[in-house]
Each structure stands twice: as C-alpha cells, then as structure tokens.
C-alpha cells in the first residue's frame, strides 16, 4: 500500500514539475524575425522583452503584430523575460480579457511564423532555426540558456 501511494505521489509530482517532459532546445539559438520585405529595424533585447510582456506595441513608430511559436515559447520567454509561462499567461490574459491590444498570434511551427511575418510588413515572430535563404529577415539572435518541454 505504501509503495502504491509513493508511486502515485511521484507520478503527480513529476506531472506538476514537468520533469517527465522531454528536454529540447538546450544551447539552441532563438531567432527573432520579420518579413523579407519588412522595414522594421534591428531590435534590442530590452525592446523585445517589453514587446513580449505586452508593454510595448510599436517599433520605429509603427504598430506591430506579434506572433509566438508555441513549440518553443517556454524557452523564448525564459530566455528573454526571465518569467515562467504562468506569469506570462497571466500578463497576456489581462491584455486579452480586457480587450486592450491585440494578443500575440499563436503559431505552431517555424514555417507558420515565417508565413505570418511575410503576410504583414509590421509583424514579428521567433523561430528555432535560422530562416533559409531570404525567406525572412533576422532582427535578433539570442542563445537559449534554458530547456523547454514539448
């Protein structure tokens, strides 16, 4: 009985802490991109942080659209904002459920992000690999120092 209870406790603990999740993206880079025809300038880490925390909605005076790659978002936010996903979801939840500004567009893969930024010249997003050829402009690169769950 004790073994059974211990097993249940361990399973629940692993589920809650995410230890059972696979590890990915360790030491990978994250590329912040805009469309290939976009005139948006290079972006600083501070501006990027403010944009993805919902505190800045323009670059070079232009209102921007932001996309987020769900497959690497945990790693992205940990790298650029030092915040966990619960805090991020609460920050964006306030923006969304008060109708204040446009929330980030949730995208599932690098290719969806590349399509998204090319559909609007004022859109930015982030991908896990350097975009091939001239499919997109890279605005910033940051070495990911954390792990993420898939």
């Amino acid at each position: 009985m004790n073994h059974f209870m211990t097993s249940i406790f361990l399973i629940l603990t692993l589920q809650f802490t995410g230890v059972s999740s696979s590890l990915a993206l360790a030491d990978d880079s994250i590329f912040v991109i805009a469309g290939k025809n976009s005139s948006l300038p290079q972006i600083t880490a501070t501006d990027l942080k403010l944009i993805y925390l919902g505190q800045k909605s323009s670059l070079a005076g232009k209102p921007i659209l932001i996309g987020q790659n769900e497959s690497i978002q945990e790693s992205f936010y940990a790298t650029f904002t030092d915040k966990d996903m619960t805090a991020i979801n609460q920050l964006w939840g306030i923006v969304i459920f008060t109708g204040k500004t446009d929330p980030p567009k949730n995208l599932k893969s690098d290719s969806e992000v590349i399509k998204f930024v090319n559909d609007d010249e004022n859109a930015i997003g982030y991908v896990s690999k350097q975009p091939e050829g001239d499919s997109a402009r890279v605005l910033a690169i940051q070495k990911s120092t954390t792990t993420t769950s898939k």
Binding site: G93, F97, T98
Partner: peptide
C-alpha cells in the same frame, strides 16, 4: 475591475 471575472488572473 476590468478582469474581475477571470479568476486565473
């Protein structure tokens, strides 16, 4: 007040 309905926040 503007997000008082959303308990998660």
């Amino acid at each position: 007040s503007d997000y008082a309905e959303v308990g998660f926040l």
